[in-house]
Amino acid sequence: MFPELNSILNTSPDNFKGGEYILVSDKKADASFLIHHFLTFYLRAGCKVCFLGLVQSFSHYNAVSQRLGVSLIQAREKGQLVFLEGLKDSLSVLAQESPSDEKHTLDYLRPPCADLRGLFEFVQASVNQTGSSGGALWGPPVLVIDDLSVLLSLGVSVGAALDFSHYCKTTICSELQGNIVTLVRCEEEEDEDEIEDDSSDMLLRGLTHQCSLGLRVEGLSTGYCRDIHGQVEVWWRERCGSAQTQRKVFQYKVHDKGASFFARGTSSAVL
């Protein structure tokens, strides 16, 4: 959890707004530090967290979270965290020739299944546990996805990914007043003209229409710099009364334990 980012977004673990759909995207940079931020933020806030880790192993996330002061193992044991280890589970699904009947979570990996209904049912089930077993132990549910664009390379269509995201939004944001954090990676396009039919860009645009808060991480256009790792564009969509979105741009540097954010041109290397 990065306190500086909290003050930018005007939230804190004790006091945050429910029903928000946060979209994190990156281009020519790595935005996974924001995923770690939101994961630790919501665990600290006492929310019931469902994490779809599709690109890294559990131990990786645990190691990073420990540096930020939260133990994922403890959270999982307490029942606060539901972790889908996409890497491990998908391997067993792919290796297994005959489909097993009990689990449909990763159905999208099997050829005939075109939608992500199984994955959504997993999310729904893990989010609804709040009522049955744990009582009112945990706060509003939170879904964190790292990252959604990896599904595209596994053969899922953009439309199916958007449908999945819509269902998550209706269940978590609208019904249960929880939050969603999704990471989407954009391919680095060599040719600016070819953006029209790039599927990851299409997914990003579709999700942008759904989200309420967007964090866009980009590398510096001037190239690598030791003191500034890139810039984050923060935008709020559809605040009441204004048809236009609000934007703010910050530069950031990721440290060993945390990250610092500053206005453009005010890094220690410049001043």
């Binding site: 645009r205 942008t208 229409h209 969509r237 559809e238 009364g241 204004s242 048809a243 236009q244 979105t245």
Partner: peptide
């Protein structure tokens, strides 16, 4: 994505 038409 740059400007929402829902308000309108």
């Amino acid at each position: 994505i740059h400007c929402s038409g829902r308000e309108l």
